[in-house]
């Protein structure tokens, strides 16, 4: 499992609708904003890159020092962004795919307003379990 991993789902309006620190390293207060900064800045790169490929998984799009940003773009242009420090391409890909399935389930919920924050605790636990499994 990666020591640092920050997972964020960004809606198509560039609003984070879900975020979780899924790394094994203890969470530090000052890192939370740093991770957000890196991921937020990486959106610029994703914006360009997303239209150059048919694949949903953009692999690693950006890096900041030793931290790498991997991105997965859904058909609705919702972006799953993972900031991590280890390179397990396959694991990240599987992680994204499974999270995508979970996300679709959330999306199918008629009470969920697309683009609003995901508050489901079930989703949260599932994502964290996936992170432990793949990252």
């Amino acid at each position: 499992m990666a020591s640092t991993a920050c997972f964020v789902i960004v809606s198509k309006n560039d609003i984070p609708i879900y975020d979780a620190e899924v790394g094994s390293a203890p969470k530090k207060e000052d890192q939370a904003y740093q991770h957000q900064f890196i991921l937020h800045a990486a959106l610029d790169v994703v914006q360009d890159l997303a239209w150059t490929t048919n694949a949903m998984s953009l692999k690693s799009v950006d890096r900041f020092n030793e931290l790498v940003v991997s991105v997965y773009v859904t058909a609705g242009h919702t972006r799953f962004m993972l900031l991590h420090d280890t390179r397990t391409e396959d694991g990240i890909k599987s992680f994204f795919q499974e999270v995508h399935e979970l996300y679709i389930k959330i999306f199918l919920n008629p009470l969920y307003l697309p683009g609003s924050r995901i508050t489901s605790s079930h989703f949260d636990t599932k994502v964290r379990a996936l992170a432990r499994k793949y990252l």
């Binding site: 800045a41 959106l43 610029d44």
Partner: peptide, 16 residues
């Protein structure tokens, strides 16, 4: 430089 790049990368600009 990020601001000058085309297209403009404002988020990168801000971050840096």
């Amino acid at each position: 430089c990020y601001l000058l790049s085309s297209p403009r990368m404002l988020r990168k600009y801000g971050f840096h």
